[in-house]
Design a protein around this nucleic acid. Structure first.
Length: 625
DNA sequence: ATTATTTTAAACACGA
DNA sequence: TTCGTGTTTAAAATAA
């Protein structure tokens, strides 16, 4: 068979393929973000700081309890156990992230409502500040058209952020985490869509306040921004100035802020007790912490991307950037730490460094040690399992286009099933048909992850082609090509939408966070409003085709369900709880690719896929120890 | 707990 | 015989 798998199935037990050592490549990337523009050092920073504290507390708690528990996992097979969590490094720089990206976070549902709130507020504040900044003094000389154009662009971004928040609010409602007063119920969407309400204070505002605010602002953009800006700042200050008697990052307003907890306490002591009892170092807490780290990491990545996008927008509009360099920021996604609890005791699992509290300082979290860092950890995840697209009707597309560059460079396993990927590859081709080899090439070209262990995934590809009826082999003059039977493909996805009626309803409204679906849906909507959105950062023909394919899928997906309310779409279920990266306890494949995350930063050893060959060979060495 | 999907691994068949 | 393609079967991992 294939030459690859040096491990051959031999009797060597299962260990083979993943066996082993994982080498880490140390995380370099330390790019300090010290560059924080002075302009942004305001309320946004304060909030940012808040979030940071929360995150930090996770680590603190973990490492504390970690110390008095050297246990090995209860059950040898406890899956979920060894998750890896990438830790972001430079999360301190407030940057604007895209709604799409934000949605991913929301989908993952790992942030507590408070955390999300903070994040969203921060985003809004940032954008507003930028808007204001650009409207101020130094730009007065601009011609009106330019100014309004730029405002429009900003406004659109802002609206998108708001949409995300709106979605978030709904999620909270659905989860019963947020109580919306009767009179407030109708607020959300609508208003958001109009970009006319201050989401910053929504949480504690009353319907009356809201109305008053809207009235004050009117529909005039200038008035809107001016008022909102001021208003937001006030709100933010109010929030930050409301320190509880006993402050603790995980305790606020009498509620435990541990992700997903929400327990209410009369006093601080009760809270502490709760914290120690309910959130002690156990599988669950560890997993949550990992998730949190993952979230942060994701955020950073997205943040960087959106920042870049914003920069491009500003550049396009000839506006001076508030943020000097929003360029290709580091997608620090790469750094990660393996929390694998599974790692018995030996290596200190997560000695997560306590990150300093300096908001602006580089977090260099795990700067230390063994953290596996680099993409490695990310994909070392062994068997990939978490795939979320596919179901939910929304195959890759959206995500892919959004993170295409990321996947092309980072050795991270894409969260899509082989079937989805194969289909994508075929649909992207001009003739909607590809030979097996061409499919292989697409995989290697589009995903760094598939540049290794070729024998494995190629076998999987072949297997999928044969297995799924949706892939049809067509004899051709010079061999055979594979095509996609869309009908079949669509057929195989419907998956019952389990869940409460309420959930379904929300989802239908497209507000749900149906992971990919509604998120993607909204994203696509946004995209339609701002055409260049998706293609802005990319731009190659390939990407465009990808985007088109995506659109197609979007349409298809919409047909299925989301079409506004009435449908009965099968398929999406609420959150895909984050793709937990679970690592098999054992072995991680020896990674080799050091690809530090910084896709952006450094490594850009950009693949240059054009002359892609089969990267097959290149794997040989990695498999073997 | 059960079921349906996916992913991995592998054995085999076939033609070049 | 070796390879690249395809098919299948199984088992393990996951998602619902």
């Amino acid at each position: 068979m294939m030459q690859e798998s040096g491990t051959e199935a031999t009797s060597d037990g299962q260990a083979s393929q993943n066996g082993g050592t994982s080498m880490e490549g140390g995380s370099r990337e330390g790019r300090p973000k010290s560059a924080t523009p002075s302009v942004e050092v305001t309320a946004a920073d304060l909030l940012h700081f808040q979030q940071h504290q929360v995150e930090q507390s996770f680590f603190t708690l973990l490492s504390q309890s970690q110390q008095n528990t050297g246990r090995k996992s209860p059950k040898p097979n406890d899956k979920q156990q060894s998750l890896q969590v990438p830790v972001s490094v430079a999360m301190m720089t407030p940057q604007v992230i895209t709604p799409q990206q934000m949605q991913q976070i929301l989908q993952q549902q790992v942030l507590s409502p408070q955390q999300l709130q903070v994040l969203l507020q921060q985003q809004q504040a940032l954008m507003l500040q930028q808007v204001m900044y650009n409207r101020q003094p130094h730009h007065e000389s601009f011609q009106e058209q330019q100014v309004s154009a730029q405002q429009l662009a900003f406004q659109q971004q802002l609206l998108q952020v708001q949409q995300v928040q709106q979605q978030h609010l709904l999620n909270l409602q659905r989860q019963g985490l947020l109580t919306i007063q009767p009179g407030q119920t109708g607020l959300p969407l609508h208003s958001l869509t109009q970009g006319q309400y201050c989401t910053t204070c929504l949480q504690h505002s009353t319907s009356a306040q809201y109305k008053k605010f809207v009235k004050t602002c009117g529909s005039d953009p200038n008035s809107f921004y001016s008022n909102v800006f001021t208003h937001v700042q006030v709100c933010l200050l109010m929030q930050t100035e409301d320190p509880s008697p006993h402050s603790h990052p995980l305790y606020g307003h009498g509620v435990c802020k541990w992700p997903g907890c929400e327990a209410v306490f009369e006093d601080f002591q009760s809270f502490l007790k709760h914290l120690n009892n309910e959130h002690a170092l156990d599988d669950r807490s560890t997993a949550q912490c990992r998730v949190q780290m993952q979230v942060v990491q994701q955020l950073e990545l997205q943040l960087a991307k959106d920042k870049e996008r914003l920069q491009a927008m500003m550049t396009h509009l000839h506006v001076k950037s508030t943020e000097p360099k929003a360029t290709p920021q580091p997608l620090n996604l790469v750094s990660s730490v393996t929390l694998s609890k599974s790692a018995p005791e030996a290596s200190p699992p997560l000695s997560l460094p306590q990150t300093p509290t300096t908001p602006t300082a580089p977090l260099t979290p795990l700067s230390q040690t063994h953290s596996v860092i680099t993409a490695n950890s990310l994909h070392s995840v062994g068997p990939m399992r978490r795939r979320y697209s596919e179901k939910y009707n929304m195959p890759i597309s959206p995500d892919i286009s959004q993170n295409k560059e990321f996947y092309m460079n980072a050795d991270v396993r894409p969260p899509f099933t082989y079937a989805s990927l194969i289909r994508q590859a075929i649909l992207e081709s001009p003739e909607k048909q590809l030979t097996l080899n061409e499919i292989y090439n697409w995989f290697t070209r589009m995903f760094a992850y598939f540049r290794r262990n070729a024998a494995t995934w190629k076998n999987a590809v072949r297997h999928n082609l044969s297995l799924h009826k949706c892939f049809v082999r067509v004899e051709n003059v010079k061999g055979a090509v594979w095509t996609v039977d869309e009908i079949e493909f669509q057929k195989r996805r419907p998956q019952k939408i389990s869940g409460s009626p309420a959930l379904v309803k929300n989802i239908q409204t497209s507000l749900g966070y149906g992971p990919t679906l509604s998120a993607a849906f909204q994203a696509s909507m946004a995209e339609n409003n701002i055409p260049l959105y998706t293609t802005a950062s990319i731009g190659s023909p390939t990407l465009n085709s990808l985007a088109n394919a995506i659109r197609e899928e979007m349409n298809g997906a919409m047909d299925h369900g989301n079409s506004n309310g009435s449908d009965s779409s099968p398929g999406r279920s609420p959150l895909p709880a984050m793709h937990h990266i679970s690592v098999k306890e054992e072995p991680l494949d020896p990674e080799d690719h050091e690809g530090p995350l910084s896709l952006v930063t450094t490594a850009n050893h950009s693949p240059d896929f054009d002359h892609h060959r089969d990267y097959d060979d290149d794997q040989g060495h990695d498999d073997m120890l």
